[in-house]
């Protein structure tokens, strides 16, 4: 069981090593001639003004919240789906109720206009 993750661990080391090695190789062979104008952030050729980390739309929060709800739902549904064949009809009905409650939440968000991008 646990041994099968040994390969994942080794692959993680190889993958990370490969990604870092590529950047190091590029760093070794590429020219390094920075100057203030070149290092300026790009904004259509004009000089940047103001802070980059601006306040962003609250709408992103709404979607993030709905996402969290449904992601947690998916986490709960995965074990149910795996065990589905051994479950009795009652367990299936229970899962359906669970999904329907969340569908209710989605409908509520929909009616409230949380899903409309302004």
């Amino acid at each position: 069981m646990l041994q099968s993750y040994a390969f994942i661990g080794i692959l993680a080391v190889v993958a990370f090593g490969f990604a870092v090695a590529g950047l190091i190789a590029a760093w070794l062979v590429s020219p390094k001639k920075p100057n203030p104008i070149k290092n300026d952030t790009y904004e259509c050729g004009i000089q940047t003004f103001g802070d980059t980390w601006v306040q962003f739309k609250a709408q992103y929060y709404l979607f993030a919240l709905i996402f969290v709800i449904f992601d947690v739902e998916a986490v709960f549904l995965f074990p149910w789906a795996v065990a589905y064949r051994q479950l009795g009809f009652y367990a299936v009905v229970e899962a359906i109720l669970f999904i329907l409650i969340l569908v209710g939440g989605l409908l509520y968000a929909w009616r409230k206009g949380a899903l409309d991008w302004q």
């Binding site: 590029a26 760093w27 203030p36 290092n39 790009y42």
Partner: peptide
């Protein structure tokens, strides 16, 4: 080509 290109890190 990309390997030998300069890698520019933006200031800030």
């Amino acid at each position: 080509k990309l390997l030998i290109k300069e890698s520019i890190t933006p200031s800030g």
